[in-house]
Design a protein around this nucleic acid. Structure first.
Lengths: 273, 273
DNA sequence: TTTTCATTGTGAGTTAACGCACATACCGTT
DNA sequence: AACGGTATGTGCGTTAACTCACAATGAAAA
């Protein structure tokens, strides 16, 4: 079942595809680089359980990790998502150790991890990694705040648009592997609600949805439908963690990534509009 | 109109009523203490506007500050609240400068503020203040995540209970000055929704509500009605910022505070059950 | 091919919260 | 005592989202 996933891991990979790592000055990057362990992140893998202590922090490159809150009755909500713009394991350097949510891979892909003490060592040097991670923490705060507001005030359909766009941004892609049921769990709504909202988007020709595989056909239309939450978040992320803070000439997206999200991983759809 | 407020400010006040300041080791506390400016925080005062740069950070002692997100159409939601357990102005030390929400005093009281450069100076010494503020940032993350989840899954009535309990905890009191309209703005729901939920609590004898003045009569019953969100948050706050991290023998609650939240500040109610 | 399972689509009835309109109650002031 | 403004209570129709049940479809396995 996971054979295909291991195949797709053999693209051109580099820790520099993670924007935090890429933004490190060369001296700092060289210091941590030997300790960065490549990790194949498989969908559904739980990086950490609610309240558990992490042994590593993860820097996704082509994967997306969901910070999922699971309640006592089983209901769930994604409070934030982490892709190549960020890092999983903030509680390790804030000193809290754990958080009451789950970190689960929701989009298979690649990433790099670092042992706790290596991260802490470099963090405590109070160099660029220190300030980068603090800025990222603020971006995470903003993301959670925006999620709270969006949950309160916006329709399922608007939230779906936001969720889609935020996911696509993190993949530099227009495709996504995710069933409606999974999306419903992330947004904390019913599966039928997603079916309805996604159905409308599909009839409008904005997306094409088939058995766990979504393709965005008209991104501009999606951006027109989404609530302000997406634009605010995107603006804040760019302000706090600008693309041009990357110190190498290594392209952080583009054609390289296309090869890393091959179609082979998804189910094939017949009448894919 | 604000004469009464200035009267109530002349109680016994100390920066040590703020738990972050109280948790500083003596050496660090002595270093910042000369720069702590006492501030009378009046209800409605906007400490910072969305996107604006702060000149000071605030350490509430007997006041509560609401981190309020106001949307383009005027709808609003509180994403977190800050009382004596915390600090207003996290973006100053994370390096982001601003956040897309508003910091507004929702419970009049006292606090202390510190100029930006003094805070940064001490923060950059990487002592206890540094780790305290990081732990507090994590507590803030947790609070926002929990707000997001609660907004999604719980009824207005449960959220009201959570909001009441979190507010009372920050005041060490069983009374609160807040109209239903204001609460509705914080929770991002209709005023009538609060009227209904509060009415039920009142008929059950759990609270007594009259024209902007709430008294909790049966806290145990309130805790029995509230959703898990409150308990999770309370647990996390105690784990991250324990009371016994306070280095002085100065009591951080109790009878001293009773004098600081006098009944004179509110409207008088006739048939107060 | 047939079977089986996961995924998506759809319909009917229910509920919580909404928007709006207005009645009532209370406080401070004149 | 009367008044004006703020705060709270209430009723009614509307709506978005929910629960539940089940049909239809595509993909993979037998």
């Amino acid at each position: 079942m996971h054979g295909k996933e291991s195949i797709r891991m053999f693209g051109i990979h580099s820790p520099l595809q993670n924007r935090l790592l890429a933004a490190l000055p060369p001296a700092e990057y060289r210091r941590v680089e030997p300790y960065l362990e490549p990790v194949a992140m498989r969908r559904g893998t739980v990086l950490y359980e609610s309240g558990a202590r992490l042994s590593h922090v993860y820097f996704p490159t082509t994967s997306i990790v969901s910070l999922l809150y699971v309640m006592a009755d089983g209901a769930s909500s994604e409070t934030a998502a982490v892709g190549k713009e960020g890092m999983v394991g903030v509680p390790l350097f804030t000193g809290g150790g754990s958080m009451p949510n789950r970190g689960v891979v929701r989009n298979a892909g690649y990433g790099y991890r670092l042992k706790e003490h290596i991260l802490k060592q470099e963090f405590n040097r109070i160099g660029e990694l220190h300030s980068l991670l603090l800025r990222y923490t603020q971006a995470l705060l903003t993301q959670m705040a925006q999620t709270a507001v969006c949950n309160r005030h916006h329709s399922v359909s608007q939230q779906l648009c936001r969720w889609l766009l935020l996911s696509l941004d993190r993949l530099d892609s227009n495709e996504l592997n995710m069933t409606q049921e999974m999306i419903a769990n992330m947004l904390g709504v019913r599966r039928e609600g997603i079916t309805e909202a996604a159905g409308k988007l599909q009839h409008s020709g904005i997306i094409s949805y088939c058995r766990g595989h979504i393709t965005v056909l008209n991104r501009a239309a999606l951006e027109a439908k989404v609530c302000e939450c997406y634009h605010v978040l995107r603006g804040e992320f760019e302000r706090l963690l600008p693309d041009d803070s990357i110190h190498t000439a290594h392209p952080a997206g583009g054609p390289v990534l296309a090869e890393q999200n091959p179609a082979q991983y998804k189910t094939t759809c017949h009448g894919n509009t």
